[in-house]
Design a protein around this nucleic acid. Structure first.
Length: 572
DNA sequence: GCCGTTTTCGGCCCGACTGTTTTCAGTCG
């Protein structure tokens, strides 16, 4: 049982209770518990094995939640959750995904209007019924329709982080079979897209039965949807569907190439094959009926006069031209990252101290970090005013002097306010080593005002970087309306850097925007925005995003040694 | 539901915005 699965149970419980109008603090207790468990560095199963007292040691876990954790770990389910699921249909919980719809409104729609699915919600909105409901109006109905559209755009796609975790587990399990020679994930997950619609797993085996039987019994699998000679489709417990394909070793490379996609990339590949008198499919590259290549991807690409192209670049976005010109980038690797320049501590909404964050970063092989807590505008996170910030920096200085093997910078994540001023005065910002300027509020302002705000930040001599520039949340909230051309041009002129926020739900800049930033010669910084020590582990997803943008080590500022990185600091 | 005690229950992060209403509930971060 994974920590994330236990956390998910509590998250769902919290959603259900909230819709039922449960005490808000009780709901928060479940959410806090979910976060605590998610952030654990050890597995919750191990803690259960050690006994209940270990569990109640955890912050936010008392007697009651400890019991529930034990039940979940030991039986794989929770009776309370099963009961609540019967009372509140899944479609009602789904409505919470719509921006602007919270538990109160959703409960009202369910109880008073009998709406219990997204479909019914859409129909009610389109009929004009919604705006007649007390507490709703024309605007709300319109926002709901827009929210529904966004959800449909993203569909039921799953964050890469979650999809990949499931795929990796299935692949590792299949590789344990003697009958299986090779196994790997393909599809959008292998291309490291920020979300995955489903999973494709490929294995080579003497017979298809053994891997299929094994998968059918896997703990993550809820149901086998179909099973044929070479393909089995299953639904995982979290709703994600997974295709298993069994091929021969002779076809493995061709099948990996075919099922990794993208569709657009493959169209170009097949056209190239045709031109050279071949036929390309998932079983191989054929001349008439003779197999010419198929064992490895490298073979297939080579026969089409191409070097092997990294999966992250396979979108038909210029990779073929680069390959032809022998100019494919040597993509950034996680090991290239030396610093992490966006993280929080208990001074605002983080869960670990300055020292704990520094130690954890050091354990992960980092050589330098910046502590960047929130500024005062983010009051719910207990954001810092000038006085508290200066005291905080003194604490950071103490740790910096006290700890060896890692450099710690005094930073701040400073809000760019709705009126296009910064949340802290210049004389304070001037004292910082590292200033991340960000939009948190008023993301829906018109482009003109958004750009005015970003320009204020870019032109401020103390601002080092724009953090999560658009403020989007993947699949949930669109980012601010930004003229990226104008932003990047100004950033390049004023030597302001751009962040890829590595959190799986942000990944902001996205791959396309990152590409554009690189073309403007703007150094990119990939940061975790960690709110806990385990939050530092999301760096990988930022690196994937950078790879999709074609970034090399030299394009990313926090791959530099601290000595050379220091030159980018405004206070130097 | 947790926590910290004032050991039996009250407090739990809170300010701003939106859309509704006509003074505020709901949502967000």
């Amino acid at each position: 049982m994974q920590n994330a699965e236990v956390a998910r149970v509590f998250e769902e419980l919290a959603d259900l209770l909230e819709i039922q109008g449960a005490n808000a603090f009780r709901v928060r207790a479940y959410r806090n518990a979910a976060r605590t468990i998610e952030d654990l560095s050890e597995t919750v199963s191990a803690l259960v094995a050690e006994g209940k007292s270990e569990l109640t040691e955890l912050p936010g876990i008392g007697k009651d939640l400890a019991e529930k954790i034990i039940t979940i770990v030991e039986t794989g389910e929770l009776p309370q959750l099963a009961k609540l699921r019967k009372e509140v249909p899944p479609g009602v919980v789904e409505m919470l995904r719509i921006e602007g719809l919270g538990p109160k409104k959703v409960a009202k729609l369910f109880h008073d209007e009998g709406i219990d699915s997204l479909q019914q919600l859409r129909e009610a909105a389109e009929r004009g019924d919604l705006e007649k409901v007390k507490g709703f109006g024309k605007k709300t109905a319109q926002n709901i329709l827009e929210g529904l559209e966004r959800i449909e755009l993203v569909g039921t796609r799953t964050f890469l982080s979650e999809a990949k975790a499931a795929a990796d587990e299935v692949v590792a399990d299949l590789l344990e079979l003697n009958a299986v020679n090779q196994a790997n994930v393909a599809g959008s997950c292998r291309r490291r897209k920020e979300t995955c619609g489903d999973l494709d797993v490929l294995v080579t085996a003497a017979s298809a039965d053994e891997p299929m039987d094994r998968l059918a019994k896997h703990r993550l699998v809820e149901k086998v949807l179909e099973r044929g000679e070479t393909k089995q489709r299953v639904r995982l417990r979290d709703g994600l569907e997974l295709d298993l394909r069994v091929v021969s070793d002779e076809s493995y490379g061709a099948a990996m190439q075919y099922f990794t996609g993208s569709k657009e990339h493959n169209i170009v590949m097949r056209r190239r094959a045709q031109k050279r008198g071949y036929k390309l499919n998932e079983y191989g590259l054929f001349k008439d009926d003779e197999l010419v290549a198929g064992k490895t991807e490298e073979d297939v690409y080579a026969k089409l006069d191409l070097p092997w192209i990294p999966p992250e670049l396979r979108e038909d976005r210029g990779e073929f031209q680069l390959a032809e010109d022998d100019k494919l980038p040597t993509l950034l690797e996680l090991d290239d990252i030396r610093g992490d320049l966006h993280m929080h501590t208990t001074a605002t909404d983080g869960t670990a101290s300055i020292r704990e964050m520094a130690e954890a970063a050091k354990e992960r092989g980092l050589k330098y970090i910046a502590i960047t807590d929130h500024s005062k505008r983010v009051s719910m996170a207990n954001g810092l005013d000038a006085e508290r910030l200066r005291a905080h920096w003194k604490e950071i200085d103490k740790v910096r002097k006290d700890i060896s093997g890692i450099d710690v910078l005094c930073g701040i994540e400073c809000d760019i306010l709705e009126d296009a001023t910064l949340d802290l005065p210049d004389d304070v910002l001037a004292e910082a080593d590292w200033v991340i300027a960000v939009l948190h509020y008023g993301l829906k302002q018109p482009r003109e005002q958004i750009m005015k705000r970003l320009m204020t930040a870019v032109k401020n001599p103390h601002v080092s970087i724009i953090g999560h520039p658009s403020g989007r949340i993947v699949g949930k909230r669109p980012g601010a309306d930004i003229d990226y051309e104008e932003l990047f041009k100004a950033a390049a002129d004023h030597e302001v850097l751009m962040e890829i926020n590595a959190h799986p739900s942000r990944l902001d800049l996205d791959d396309i925007q990152t590409r554009a930033a690189k073309e403007h010669g703007i150094p990119i910084v990939i940061s975790t925005d960690a709110h806990s020590t385990t939050g530092l582990d999301v760096m990988q997803y930022g690196v994937y995003q950078a790879r999709r943008a074609g970034l090399e080590k030299k394009d990313v500022a926090n791959t530099q040694t601290f000595k050379s990185f220091r030159k980018l600091l405004r206070s130097q």
